[in-house]
Amino acid sequence: MSDDIVLRTEDLTKHYGGVHALEGADFELKHGEHVAIMGDNGAGKSTFVRQITGVEQRTRGRIWLYGDEVNFAGPLDAREAGIETVFQTLALADDLDVPDNLFLGREMTKWNWLGPFRVLDYKGMRDATVAGLERTAVKIPNIRNTIRNMSGGQRQCVAIARTATFHSRLTIMDEPTAALGVQETAQVENIVRQLKEAGEPLILISHNMRQVMDLVDRIIVFRRGRIVANLDRDETDGQDVVAYITGAKTGVEYEGAA
């Protein structure tokens, strides 16, 4: 297995009782590559992500991260291995500020012998936060403002900025702009481009065809729990992708899959 493969799955399968939500997904993500996952509601996109990030335990299949086979017991394991996920629901604590949220659950601390009462290194976290936000070109007037007082776009940016701050090895975004306005969407897309320039690998789940065509290198289409197409962005167009999503077409290599 070559080293430039960031993530590889083989026969990844998830059954909820009798429901086959995900069936035999073989997937590869190369270094520095941005891949979009598309598909109708219930096609298995989010299920796929939940297996990779350890939120759920897969029924069958294997996962390799940077060549090492991984078995995450929970989302924390995945995060520690370097998979950073921006969830549909933002997972931010509204009453805390930006550094607090970025470092939630993995605070920089001093005097660790104090156990649960170990002291927070606020300055260290602030500096790392500013550095991380600058790297992703996130614009926030005051990082010490609480999330409650921020716009939807800023909140999404904070959620994404975790990636840059922690030098994650793989970023997964689950419909990051679904709830945002035009300007805020543009802001988030700029961050995605920034990640591309920095060579950070990314999996983007999105329903927004224009966004996908703008941002990613490759498009994977899910239908009824199976991968039905693996398309190069430069060799396809919106109509073609829609045909795969709706089932009018199926990729040659996936014949008989769905």
Partner: peptide, 11 residues
Amino acid sequence: MADTSHGTGGL
């Protein structure tokens, strides 16, 4: 990244 302003991205 002035420590006093707590802003990023030039804001």
